[in-house]
Design a protein around this nucleic acid. Sequence first.
DNA 1: GCCGTTTTCGGCCCGACTGTTTTCAGTCG
Length: 575
Amino acid sequence: MLSNADVAAKLLEIRTLMEMAGMSFYKYMAFEKAAASVENAPPLRDIAAAGELTKLPSIGKSIAVVITQLLERGGADALDELYAIFPPTIVEVLGVSGIGAKTAASLWSDFQIGSLADLEAAIEGEVFAGVPRMGPKTIENWKRGILAYKGRQRRMPLARALRIAHEAMDYLRAGPAHDRLVYAGSARRQEVTVGDIDLVCTASDAAAITAYFAKWERARAVLAEGATKTSIWLDDGFQIDLRVLPDHLYGNLLQHFTGSREHNIKLREYAVRKSLRVSENGILNLETGDAITCADEPGVYEALGMAYIPPELRTGLDEIDRALAGTLPALLDARDLRGDFHMHCTWSDGRDSLEAMIAAAKARGYDYHAISDHSWGRGRTYGLDPEKLREQRALVEELSARVGMRTFCASEVDILPDGAMDFDDDVLAQLDVVIASVHSAFNIGREAMTARIIRACENPFVTIIGHPTGRMLGSFPGYDFDHDAVFAAAARTGTALEIDGQAQRLDLPAPLARRAKELGVTFTVDSDAHGVEDLTEIELGVGQARRAGLTKEDVLNTRSYEDVRAFISRKRGRA
DNA sequence: GCCGTTTTCGGCCCGACTGTTTTCAGTCG
């Protein structure tokens, strides 16, 4: 069964092949919009099973049929028809930077080049000598594009992209004078993976900065260098785009380069209906000729007569309608967090000592936190048995009193394959907080996994379900279970669901968290830190919570210590 | 192909940079 991301990729492939085939601009753009909608939707299999695909934005009858076919057989009639015109390997040619639909189409029709190997052979054989619009510079660009295509890793995890963005900004800060400098694009929107980094800068002498950026020693290639814009590739083909404009345009510039593409298209379509033309250069009133420039980003949305839309919500789905109606949620802010329920120390698989973790939680200004080392199951050597747990409790009480920190004695307890917990209830009862997580037996089947997690929710001592889907970015999509059934059980039993901020997890994923919120679930946002320096990863969790539209009220660890205690007691009292 | 506060037809975002173009098409975001 294809994942949402797989379906979105197929829709984009159809979109590009349609463009190559010379089909109507608006027809293939519809597939592009549909792809964006699919990426932000809950799992398609559930929606398709309910017959509700056309309720998703930008999905009509025709594309719903395509999606259904993709889900059922991994392919679609529309795609097969296009494969009758172009070979499937032509996507390789399209993947080369600098080759778009028009060029790929003519390479196929004029030279029968339908794969990367064909293209390399043609360049090697100097087939393009003397061909119009295929001069030496163009061919050199293609060669570079081929190298990048081969070496490129597709999209990188958010945390790594943010590190690179900060390195690039550090370099820029050491260069010519500028006013403001920030990262924008998908990183600012807190997308789980980032395809390239967009940097936004304001300065009076833009050209000095774009030229300086092109000289960065880490730039393997300079793709474009103009008066206001520079694009570079790093060693691994990862791209950074820098755009520089005067400071009075900062709001317009930041809004433009934060995207998403679909958000901007919809925003501009709305603006056009009000005779306004929106771009990074300002907002032009087409009737009066007046230009509005915005020194700050909220000014852009204000000028369009709508509420400010936080970057994490700029998906191109329904956020503009909600901004116009004034029904956008007041999103969770990192400063709302009063604690962190999920962290490990050297008593299990953490890197820093118990004392160091407690001190670090105190240093972050938390009112409370939990030490939640692993339970003893799975034959692992580092988990704590009940005896060790008692020892740890004594030490936690001593250390936290000394530091002046309210530390919950907790454990991340394995949910066994049958849904029982790795500790007996009398052990669980002695813990302040219990995080129940699946760490083994991922492939027991959808029904068994659903029953397993629901049984964990029904245990009165379980406070939180940890990283509920088990996904690992880039390596494991998560185990299969009936999301709605589990979310309903969590809501019914007063069990919180975690948004785990660990860089490889970011779990719950935002579309699922949005669904869980609809079903009345309470959440926690945690770091799942295995060392002091990981505690900041709770901010990645906040990003995902914001993408899900969660507010302060939805999140348990924004509440006071006493209210957290009450939440836990309430569930235990139901037993 | 999708959609609707001009609603079932007629409209659909905007601009920078490149190469080779003597005025602009293609690509990209």
